[in-house]
């Protein structure tokens, strides 16, 4: 049924921490690995080992260069006499690299569901997961057109629409050890940049993370009300000895207790 549920019991989704993601693409690969043999048709590839490989993937990582507006990314070194590394930002703001994983955001107002003419595209009322019933999909592609995030890809072999299932065949799977009952991308992330949970519960880990770190919606102007949230990278500054560190870390006082704390205080008193 392609009408959206008015409310879902749970709002399962992901928190993606842009501060932590190192862009290793492990989540991309493990997603393909699990989902090519899991829910629905395999994730097809054409020319997999050739010049122009093309395949369906449910999770992809873009890498962006973010340059603070006040400092150009790269000035001509000869004109200033300084090496390029010293010009990557100055003062409080630095140019930074942000790895940006992107998969279905399981939107509350998912346009991809309502545009579907066959009822193949749906949002589950129990947990809010957006799924495609592939044997009903006619491969018209309209759902992919309606998604601003590029979360849906037509399978080049099966000609049906593929998308993130939030690993629906893992998270409820009693045959797996409990630790593995989480989406493949979350389970595999070596940096813990992806977290899975229920956003309807204000006390869940994901809800708390979003609250504390100012988790954001992607493209709020599209009125899709995404469930997945992104945690923005923490601001970074350059220390006097040229190290890049998190801004909040530079402001925090160094604390020591025990013997070192006593020594620190004693030496302070000596003036």
């Amino acid at each position: 049924m392609t009408q959206l549920p008015t409310q879902t019991d749970k709002k399962l989704g992901l928190v993606i921490d842009l501060d932590i993601c190192v862009g290793c693409h492990a989540c991309v690969v493990n997603c393909k690995e699990w989902n090519t043999s899991g829910y629905g048709a395999p994730l097809g590839d054409t020319n997999a080992y050739d010049a122009d490989p093309l395949g369906s993937w449910l999770n992809r990582i873009h890498t962006y260069e973010v340059t603070p507006q006040e400092t150009p990314a790269y000035d001509n070194p000869s004109s200033t006499g300084a090496s390029p590394s010293h010009q990557c930002g100055s003062g409080d703001s630095l140019a930074q690299l942000v790895h940006f994983p992107k998969s279905c955001l399981h939107c509350e107002d998912a346009p991809c569901v309502t545009v579907c003419p066959t009822g193949a595209s749906m949002k589950r009322s129990e947990d809010g997961i957006v799924l495609v019933e592939e044997d009903k999909c006619i491969g018209c592609g309209l759902c992919a057109w309606s998604c601003p995030y590029g979360a849906r890809e037509m399978d080049p072999m099966e000609n049906v629409m593929k998308k993130c299932t939030l690993c629906v065949d893992r998270i409820y799977n009693d045959n797996l050890p409990e630790i593995d009952r989480t989406p493949a991308c979350v389970r595999t992330c070596p940096a813990n940049a992806r977290h899975f949970g229920d956003f309807a519960d204000p006390n869940s880990d994901v809800s708390i993370m979003v609250k504390e770190r100012g988790g954001m919606d992607l493209m709020p102007e599209m009125d899709t009300k995404p469930v997945n949230k992104y945690l923005p990278p923490r601001a970074k500054v350059k220390t006097s000895d040229g190290l890049e560190i998190a801004a909040e870390q530079s402001k925090s006082e160094m604390k020591a207790d025990g013997f070192l704390g006593w020594l620190d205080k004693a030496l302070e008193k000596m003036g």
Partner: peptide, 16 residues
């Protein structure tokens, strides 16, 4: 699109 605009100019460095 990425919500990173407040940090500066955002440019795609590497395609997925």
């Amino acid at each position: 699109a990425t919500g990173l605009g407040h940090l500066g100019d955002v440019k795609l460095l590497e395609s997925p």
